[in-house]
Simulated scan of single mutants.
Amino acid sequence: MKMLAIDCAASLCAACVYDAGAGVERGRHVLDLGKGHAEHLMAVIEAALKAGGIGYRELDAVAVSIGPGSFTGLRVGVSTARGLALALKIPAIGVTTLEALAAEAANAFPGRAVLAALDGGREEIHAALFDKALALTYGPAVATLSEATGMAVNATAVLAGTAAPLIAAAAGHGFDIGPVVATADIATYARLAAAKGAGEKPKPLYLRGADAKPQAGFILPRQGHEAGKPGFGKDHGPKGKKS
């Protein structure tokens, strides 16, 4: 099975071609953008396909990171993966950033529980706890720093993700720590998706709402809100005419 993997969950705009049958990566292309995934993703995908020596029609599946991560980046990655899957009539498979980070930590420290945790800002930790077999036992969910620290201590877990240093400092003692990054290597998403197989259509995993909200000063009040119907005033009929 030839798989295209896409990741726009953090600052990277990444794609790779993975041969699941042989268990090898055939080609990749990665840009560290910060922003602008929508403008660059298709070019990144085409560069990865070229490096892998295959075309779109040779793909059997598309893998995509579904978050938690960048609100806009996740929408770009997931919508692109689903669009390609629809056009090519192949499955799209979602993999969370937390399970990908946990898989990388487990490779470094096999046979251990893993707490994958990202610093969500606003004193939030986006966390998921995995047991020794990498089965999910908690989350993905928003936790406080004290809650995440308690889980890590109780499970004697390996830490992974951007919140790992925060948790270790809060605990006051050392932990084994895997990757301290916001997203995993692109090939990790491909390998995990190949192991999962087809399932539900991927959708972005948002653990909190978007930061951008309408400014109250620019919201116009609905006409005739007293009557509860647009266009009706208190003593008026439709469009403000006297009844």
Rank of each mutant, 00 (worst) to 15 (best):
E99Q: 09
I54E: 07
V114L: 05
A117S: 14
A38R: 10
Y56L: 13
L59T: 06
L74M: 03
A61G: 07
P110S: 09
A85I: 11
K35H: 13
V24P: 07
L59C: 10
A103D: 13
G69S: 07
D119C: 02
A63N: 10
A113V: 05
A51H: 12
A47E: 08
I125P: 03
T72Y: 12
S79M: 14
I54N: 02
A92W: 03
M42V: 07
R75T: 12
R26D: 02
R75D: 06
R112G: 09
R28S: 11
V95L: 01
G73K: 09
S79G: 05
L98M: 08
G77N: 06
A61E: 08
F71I: 10
H40E: 11
E46Y: 02
G27M: 12
I66F: 03
V76W: 01
A87F: 14
A43L: 14
R57F: 03
E124R: 07
K35E: 11
G83R: 11
G120I: 00
P110M: 04
A63M: 00
P68V: 02
F71D: 04
N107F: 03
D32R: 15
P91Q: 09
L31V: 09
G67T: 00
A63Q: 11
F71L: 09
T80W: 09
E25K: 10
A127C: 06
L98F: 04
D32C: 12
V78K: 02
V114H: 03
A128Q: 11
A117D: 06
H40Y: 13
D60L: 03
D60S: 13
T80P: 07
A63C: 08
G27A: 10
